[in-house]
């Protein structure tokens, strides 16, 4: 073989190495992006769970003062149990219909809770109860956390979806079997904390 052949071979090897490095970079970037989405989803589940844990305590406290508002309590308990029955796997971020169901179930609990908070307005004694005030602050804080984490989830989810649609990434994403991630949809009012005035 001539010297020229070796030089060509060297250049070809160099190019191949660079291409492989670029591909590895893209692969890692995609893996990282997907991990970010899962983390954001874990946070979303976390804050929703926090609200779920809060509900029994809240209902008990309100019951102590407003025993005959049976209907409202049932609404809350039912909405809560519907959510606990949902079997959520982390896969939900890949399935918009499942996420939609999740969002609807949580939305039902939100509106049941706001109905409960409206009922509370009729019981001044309850509204002065320290325990209740603390629970109410926790509920408001949790609702706010939910909207924060939902927004963050939507952001990273959108980022991921853009990433896997851009050209060279697209091919690798396909090869890795990555799917577009689902979003929460805006529902005016439903994500807001129940309005309670003091």
């Amino acid at each position: 073989m001539k010297k020229g052949t070796w030089v060509t071979l060297g250049i070809v090897i160099g190019i191949v190495v660079l291409v492989v490095l670029a591909l590895v970079g893209i692969y890692n970037g995609l893996v990282r992006a997907e991990e970010t989405v899962s983390e954001a989803w874990a946070q979303v589940e976390n804050v929703y769970q926090r609200r779920l844990d809060l509900v029994p305590n809240l209902v008990e406290t309100v019951k102590g003062y407003a025993a005959h508002e049976q209907e409202t309590f049932e609404g809350v308990v039912e909405a809560r149990s519907k959510i606990s029955q949902m079997n959520l796997s982390p896969e939900v971020v890949n399935q918009p219909e499942l996420l939609m169901q999740f969002q609807q179930a949580q939305g039902a609990l939100s509106s049941a809770l706001s109905r409960l908070m409206v009922v509370v307005e009729r019981y001044p004694d309850l509204k002065a109860n320290q325990n209740f005030l603390a629970l109410q602050a926790q509920l408001e804080g949790t609702e706010n956390r939910i909207s924060v984490e939902r927004r963050r989830f939507n952001l990273v989810s959108r980022e991921f979806n853009t990433k896997i649609r851009v050209f060279p990434h697209q091919l690798i994403a396909k090869w890795m079997g990555l799917q577009a991630k689902a979003y929460f949809e805006a529902e005016p009012g439903a994500a807001q904390a129940p309005e309670v005035s003091f």
């Binding site: 005030l133 603390a134 629970l135 109410q136 602050a137 926790q138 408001e140 804080g141 949790t142 003091f198």
Partner: peptide, 11 residues
């Protein structure tokens, strides 16, 4: 500084 305490400080 949980939410309830933060609320208390405000009110």
């Amino acid at each position: 500084l949980p939410d309830a305490l933060a609320g208390q400080i405000i009110y």
